[in-house]
Design a protein around this nucleic acid. Structure first.
Length: 589
DNA sequence: CTAGGGTTAG
């Protein structure tokens, strides 16, 4: 029997409904409950409607459209209901709706609180909408919520996402108290905005008790990422120790991150140790191992790992295949690569994405199958992006294929995506076949159009301090010693047969104009500093933002034997291990 | 816990 007056509906019935909402396990149940609520007019019971709304907007039934429909049936939504709805929007695919609702609230003169702002900021973060966020920030100040630490933490993350790290720091500085999450957001801001050196410094400060809180598992995840990008193995090892001290050793995310850090820092055995020690491995663990092996030039082992993964009944995903295909391309396993490329869609229903195509173009291109690579690009269902064309352009340079190189640059121009590096590649293609006229032409074009090359930058991390070098750097406090050391290294290497390469790789245009004098690439400066600042026998680990040039490659090769030092350089795409006069990659690329 | 905020692997 339907109660005559729903508001007076018995306590028992209400509780029953609430427990029904709580235990609901299927979307169809929700629909039934919804119908029941409408039928019994329990919608007017604020406890019920709020509960139902938040249940609907929560995963795994996180369907905003459904929540919106229900919300619209509520006559006078309470602040709590407005907030719940905005929260649902902020986590959905249409975060802007949250802001619309917020504006509607203000228009209606509804009360808002700091949670309302918090959800709105989340919407802005998701949209990376700077203007929207600035408005909310203004509101926060006007509403007097500027000492709400949680709200400010969300605001920091917003600025960080919008690449406004200085504003993020300003918010951080104004926070009345900063807990671990606040520090974590600061770290993630540094990480996102290329301030990795500051990440290490903050971690040290936290450990040293200067921040009033200790690093947690999330802190470690961030710091490990920083170590990965800096090729800072030693620091990463310290983080690993900390993880064990704190008892985080079983956390899957952390282990996966450790595998990546170790393998991308060239320490495959440690990566493997972490992997083996994991009681629960997921697809991420396997993929991290596979791409780690790939990056270290161990293509066969990467394929072995992939097969072992299948035997362990772990289903590969897109990133697994990216790892497998890049393993094939780094190790020149053309046939295997083609096979996996076909298999991924046939056996695993995974349609190749740009990364997979990129690997295939790289694979075919390096193998000299340039036309086939071009065909593959043209056959793509989605529009090829600039990275794909750039990969092919790199292959054109290696194989001195001028005509195709020109065509590729044309494609890049059409995409309006051409960058300085592309012209340098084209220029190098011309110079590799001795077409100096065209070289001059391209150079003039670049000069006339003010096209600047990306400055190469190499870092070396010692004792948690990041030392950064650029071409012909004069900013390091020990620059005099470094240049003296570089001179000495130069004469030692010359004796051992190292000949500077000046014509084949026109890496840096200004040096070219200085009359073919080879400038001191950042890699060399960092190596000289490494020799200077570490005891004999210590491995020198560098990270470079571009691609190591032929000359620096030779330099490192000869140096590894003359100075009996292992040198590990990570550039844009791979890891080069130099030892005893050899490099782990068979030839230069 | 009962409405509810911030960071998070390959």
């Amino acid at each position: 029997m339907r109660p005559a007056n729903p508001v007076s509906c018995s306590q028992g019935a209400s509780e029953q409904l609430i427990s029904l909402i709580k235990s609901c396990a299927h979307e169809s149940h929700l629909l039934q409950i919804h119908a029941h609520i409408l039928r019994t007019r329990s919608l007017e019971d604020p406890t019920i409607s709020l509960r139902f709304l938040s249940r609907v907007s929560l995963s795994p039934f996180g369907r905003v459209s459904y929540a919106r429909r229900f919300f619209s049936q509520i006559k006078n939504p309470s602040l709590a209901e407005f907030n719940t709805m905005i929260r649902a929007y902020s986590g959905s695919d249409s975060p802007e709706e949250g802001l619309y609702l917020y504006r509607e609230m203000r228009r209606l003169g509804e009360r808002t609180n700091s949670l309302t702002s918090s959800f709105c900021i989340k919407s802005c973060t998701k949209m990376a909408s700077l203007t929207g966020g600035l408005q909310i920030h203004g509101r926060i100040v006007r509403d007097g919520h500027q000492s709400d630490s949680l709200l400010l933490t969300a605001l920091m993350d917003f600025y960080s996402i919008c690449c406004k790290s200085e504003q993020a720091c300003a918010v951080f500085d104004e926070m009345p108290e900063r807990d671990t999450v606040a520090w974590n957001v600061l770290i993630s801001c540094y990480l996102r905005n290329c301030r990795t050196r500051d990440v290490l410094a903050v971690f040290d400060a936290m450990i040293g008790g200067e921040c009033g809180c200790q690093p947690d598992d999330v802190t470690c995840l961030h710091v490990l990422q920083a170590c990965t990008s800096l090729n800072a193995l030693e620091f990463g090892g310290r983080v690993h120790e900390y993880i064990q001290e704190r008892g985080y050793g079983d956390a899957v995310k952390l282990c996966n991150s450790l595998i990546t850090m170790y393998s991308r820092c060239g320490s495959m055995d440690k990566a493997f140790m972490v992997f083996k020690g994991m009681r629960v491995k997921n697809v991420v663990s396997w993929s991290a191992l596979i791409s780690g092996l790939a990056m270290n030039g161990k293509g066969r082992e990467a394929i072995e790992a992939y097969l072992a993964m299948l035997r362990a009944n772990v289903v590969p995903d897109d990133q697994t295949f990216t790892g497998v295909l890049s393993a094939c391309s780094h190790s020149g396993l053309v046939e295997e690569g083609m096979l996996f490329f076909e298999e991924m869609s046939k056996d695993f229903q995974r349609m190749p994405n740009v990364h997979h195509y990129g690997c295939m173009v790289d694979l075919l291109g390096r193998a000299g199958l340039l036309d086939q690579a071009y065909e593959l690009i043209m056959s793509m269902s989605s529009k090829p992006d600039s990275t794909i064309w750039r990969t092919l352009l790199g292959a054109c340079r290696i194989h001195r294929h001028v005509a195709l190189g020109e065509r590729v640059v044309w494609h890049l121009t059409e995409l309006k995506a051409q960058e300085a590096g592309d012209y340098v590649l084209l220029l190098n293609t011309y110079s590799s076949v001795g077409d100096w006229e065209r070289v001059t032409e391209v150079r003039k074009f670049m000069k006339d159009n003010g096209i600047q090359t990306t400055p190469g930058c190499t870092t070396i991390t010692l004792n948690g301090i990041v030392h950064e070098f650029t071409v012909d750097d004069v900013s390091h406090p020990r620059q005099n010693e470094i240049y003296t050391m570089l001179d000495e290294i130069g004469s030692q290497l010359k004796i051992a047969g190292y000949v500077p390469e000046i014509s084949s790789e026109l890496h840096n245009l200004s040096s070219e104009e200085k009359g073919y004098r080879l400038s001191n690439h950042s890699e060399k400066l960092a190596i000289a500093f490494g020799i200077l600042a570490t005891p004999p026998g210590t491995t020198i680990r560098l990270a470079n933002n571009l691609r190591i040039c032929v000359d620096c490659h030779n330099f490192a090769k000869v140096l590894s034997s003359v100075y009996d030092r292992m040198v590990i350089i990570r550039d844009r795409s791979r890891l080069h291990h130099f030892q005893g006069g050899h490099c782990s990659c068979n030839d230069y690329w």
